[in-house]
């Protein structure tokens, strides 16, 4: 009985404290909260679905398939183990599409795959520029010695990390044009390097993390400001090549 009285009193106090808000306003706000929460829940969910299913609209936006890939895709047998999904037959995608403008405006339309699905090898970009006087200059970004503070280094690291798969091939051309301008050079070569991770045993065997054998060239482009058109994709080289860092 005493407990019941206490509960009633507490509920009464709560109601009193909320008294300043009209019930109708509370209802409207509640609906707005639910829609917002649905949006911030569906955005990472959609990002995960896109990763798993490679939704055509997302893929087209983020990566232009090469001619070889297009041929391979058209010849491939449809994957019946994963039925096609779309806004027409998926409630969460339908609602996400309705909320997408709001999520984009507020920068909420993204996933939270930090070091997921697996922490992978790093991607670096090594470039060699040739100046008008014939001299050459070679560097790699990101470079912890040149980019300080750490946040600045990380921004450059993200540039190289997103240069493959995430950004369109035109981004590599843009990087090249930017570096040509910065170094006042006439010609540039960019190489996309994958820095392979060592196993515990390899480290225990004394192999350093920056051993030359751990760097593999995934792709390369070269040219001057006018002729940078080739996409920076793995297909540009026939096979990975081990290089000196």
């Amino acid at each position: 009985m005493a407990k019941s009285e206490k509960t009633d009193k507490s509920a009464e106090q709560s109601s009193e404290a909320r008294g300043s808000l009209h019930p109708l306003l509370r209802l409207v706000l509640s609906l707005a909260f639910l829609l917002h929460l649905a949006g911030i829940f569906l955005a990472p969910m959609r990002a995960s679905i896109s990763d798993a299913y490679r939704l055509p609209d997302r893929d087209a936006a983020f990566r232009r398939p090469s001619a070889d890939e297009q041929r391979a895709n058209s010849a491939a047998t449809p994957d019946f183990s994963r039925p096609p999904i779309s806004a027409e037959n998926s409630a969460n995608i339908w609602l996400h599409e309705k909320l997408e403008p709001y999520l984009n405006i507020c920068y909420l339309n993204h996933g939270y795959n930090f070091f997921a699905p697996d922490p992978g090898p790093s991607l670096l970009i090594r470039y060699t520029v040739e100046r008008e006087d014939g001299s050459t200059f070679r560097a790699v970004f990101p470079d912890l010695k040149k980019q300080w503070p750490r946040l600045r280094y990380h921004r450059h690291f993200m540039l190289s990390s997103h240069s493959w798969r995430v950004l369109p091939p035109e981004a590599a051309d843009a990087y090249a044009r930017h570096l040509l301008k910065v170094h006042n050079a006439k010609r540039i070569t960019l190489e996309l390097l994958e820095h392979r991770l060592l196993s515990e045993q390899e480290v225990l065997d004394g192999i350093p993390l920056d051993d030359p054998s751990t760097y593999v060239v995934l792709g390369t482009i070269s040219g001057d400001a006018q002729s940078l058109a080739a996409p920076m994709l793995e297909e540009t080289l026939p096979a990975p090549e081990e290089v000196q860092p």
Binding site: M45, N113, P117, D118, S122, P142, H195
Partner: peptide
């Protein structure tokens, strides 16, 4: 979603993910 995203990879299941993070020189 950070956790669920990790469960889509094998390294968080077999326990090697933390090593992969520590073995990454760039980080």
């Amino acid at each position: 979603f950070g956790g669920l995203g990790k469960l889509q990879g094998w390294a968080w299941w077999d326990g090697s993910a933390l090593w992969m993070a520590f073995a990454n020189l760039e980080y």
